[in-house]
Deep mutational scan, measured.
Amino acid sequence: EVHFESHGEEQAMRVVKMLKKRNLTVEVKVENNKWIITAK
């Protein structure tokens, strides 16, 4: 499981795309203006 924190939507979306290319399940949450990305 991979956790990634991002402060910007643009950066977060880039990471999500990259993770999805690896056929991982990606969950995105926004907490306290931080984008929290979890990949399994």
Rank of each mutant, 00 (worst) to 15 (best):
E1H: 13
E1M: 13
E1K: 10
V2R: 07
V2E: 07
V2I: 13
V2C: 15
H3P: 03
H3G: 04
H3D: 03
H3S: 09
H3N: 07
H3F: 12
F4L: 06
F4E: 03
F4M: 05
E5S: 08
E5G: 05
E5P: 03
E5D: 04
S6R: 13
S6V: 15
H7W: 14
H7D: 13
H7L: 12
G8L: 14
G8F: 14
G8Y: 15
G8I: 14
E9D: 03
E9F: 15
E9I: 13
E9H: 11
E10R: 12
E10I: 10
E10M: 08
Q11V: 08
Q11R: 08
A12K: 02
A12Q: 01
A12L: 09
A12N: 01
A12F: 06
A12P: 01
A12G: 03
M13S: 04
M13E: 04
M13D: 03
R14Y: 08
R14M: 09
R14I: 09
V15P: 00
V15Y: 08
V15L: 14
V15G: 00
V16C: 15
V16P: 01
V16R: 03
V16H: 02
V16T: 03
K17R: 13
K17L: 14
M18H: 06
M18P: 02
M18I: 09
M18N: 05
M18D: 02
M18G: 03
L19P: 00
L19A: 02
L19I: 01
L19V: 01
L19H: 02
K20A: 07
K20Q: 12
K21D: 11
K21T: 08
K21N: 09
K21H: 07
R22T: 04
R22H: 11
R22S: 07
R22N: 06
R22G: 07
N23T: 04
N23Q: 07
N23G: 15
N23I: 05
N23D: 05
L24D: 01
L24F: 15
L24M: 13
T25Y: 12
V26N: 00
V26F: 08
E27C: 14
E27T: 13
E27M: 11
V28T: 02
V28G: 00
V28A: 02
V28C: 09
K29W: 09
K29S: 07
K29M: 07
V30S: 04
V30R: 10
V30I: 12
V30Q: 09
E31F: 10
E31K: 07
E31V: 13
E31G: 04
N32V: 04
N32D: 11
N32K: 08
N32E: 08
N33K: 05
N33S: 06
N33F: 09
K34P: 00
K34V: 13
K34N: 05
K34W: 05
K34E: 02
K34I: 14
W35T: 01
W35P: 00
W35K: 00
I36F: 08
I36V: 08
I36N: 02
I36Y: 09
I36Q: 03
I37S: 00
I37V: 09
I37Q: 00
T38R: 06
T38D: 04
T38K: 07
T38F: 07
A39F: 12
A39I: 14
A39W: 14
K40L: 09
K40R: 13
K40M: 11
K40Q: 09
K40G: 05
